Computed example of a mutant assay.
Amino acid sequence: MAQTEERTRARRSGRRGRFLIVVLTALVLLFGVPWWTVVFGPDWPIPVLVVGTVAFACAAIAFPVLMYLGHGRRRTDWAARIGDTLLGVIWVLFAWSLIGTLARGVLAVFGIGDHGRTVALGVLAVAAVLVVWGWFEAMRVPRIRTVQVRIPRLGPGLDGTRVVVLADTHFGPIDRTRWSTALAAAVNQLSPDIVCHAGDIADGTVASRRSQAAPLRTITAPLGKVFVTGNHEYFGETAAWLDHLTELGWQPLHNRHIALERGGDRLILAGIDDATAKASGLPGHGADLPAALAGADPDLPVLLVAHQPRQVTAAVAAGVDLQVSGHTHGGQIWPFHYLVRADQPSVSGLTRHGERTQLYTSRGAGFWGPPLRIFAPSEISLLILRTAHR
């Protein structure tokens, strides 16, 4: 028994050690590369070098503290706002510092002299423009993205059905109640038949995000308003958010389906828990598509709401006609979409998987963490369902 406990402690210690190494490596790269490119490398005068070095050092030390205070057990909103913004700024600086360093190397190969200061100023200018632009993109009401989706099994009575997909509203540390009100108004202007929220509704407790979520009550759809859990629902009050969205007039598709009818034809609208639900340990939670489709007429077309695009593997096996998802944010801040693509089969838009299944991945309406969207605009997705014969 003592040896088993000792091995368990050793494994935990090893995991903590590896985690610490990863965090430290990430901090060194995120802050070190921009520091080298814009401060140390260009051979600035000593005062500039000292001030720049101190600024980067203070930011590197403050960042993990702010993230711990903002996203740890305390969930202090002011710390989250500062830490998230700092993360966005340093990511942009990191990405463009790499590009600047590459450009400087190319110039050196062709013997075009040392342009260290020019590259440094260029990186700072580009980063400043992108951060300001990205902030406005994140805070604006999402653009409408309209897509015609042809579903061969769709009955003629359902042709033209208007499905609005919301995802990743992420009501969080920045109070976006006015934004949420405008979002709901924009959805209603589309006259949707069905509205689906594909998860990641909020970050924080119901009590702290109640005012931001309240406008969701005003959204109307004659055939139904449904939602599923995203991975962020499992970071906090899962049951409370399920109950609260129900109070706001939304139906939870917690591994279940409903049958909708329009023009004499029917459609199965199903939903499953997020892919991370089972690991949360919450009783009764875990993506279960067979349970969601139990009792459904196999001859009817199926529209599945699942938070993560990678859940399409199960959808293909089950013969689902269309899956709608979010989660990716379209990458949110370029070039992060390359990392997202390594984990998901789609970053945004309509894609086909297998012989029958189509997947629509929304870039999401809100943002998580950094209040920036760079080359990944937010969206309200309007899917117009079409029959095969139209």
Score class of each variant (00 low, 15 high):
Ile272Tyr: 10
Tyr234Glu: 13
Gly271Met: 01
Lys225Asp: 01
Ala279Gly: 12
Ala270Glu: 08
Asp193Ile: 03
Ser211Pro: 08
Val228Ser: 00
Gly236His: 12
Asn255Trp: 04
Arg210Asp: 08
Arg256Pro: 00
Ala214Cys: 01
Asp273Cys: 08
Leu245Ser: 00
Ala275Asp: 11
Ala279Phe: 09
Val228Cys: 01
Gly236Leu: 15
Gly199Ser: 01
Ala182Gly: 06
Arg262Val: 00
Asp273Ser: 09
Ala198Asn: 00
Asp203Ser: 09
Ala202Ser: 14
Thr218Ile: 05
Gln212His: 10
Ala279Lys: 12
Ala279Ile: 07
Ala202Val: 13
Ala270Gln: 03
Val187Lys: 06
Glu261Met: 05
Gly230Leu: 04
Leu242Gly: 04
Asp193Lys: 01
Gly263Ala: 03
Gly281Asp: 12
Gly264Tyr: 06
Gly230Pro: 03
Cys196Phe: 10
Leu223Tyr: 15
Ala240Ile: 09
Ala277His: 15
Gly249Ile: 06
Ala239Asp: 14
Pro222Gly: 09
Ala213Gly: 05
Gly281Met: 10
Pro222Val: 05
Ala202His: 12
Ala270Lys: 05
Asp274Arg: 03
Pro222Leu: 02
Thr276Trp: 09
Ala184Met: 04
Pro192His: 05
Leu267Val: 08
Gln212Phe: 03
Gly271Leu: 02
Ala279Gln: 10
Glu233Leu: 05
Ile201Asp: 01
Ala186Ser: 15
Ala202Asn: 11
Asp193Gly: 07
Thr218Ser: 14
Glu233Gly: 04
Val187Ala: 02
Lys225Pro: 02
Ala202Glu: 12
Leu245Lys: 00
His257Glu: 01
Asp265Cys: 02
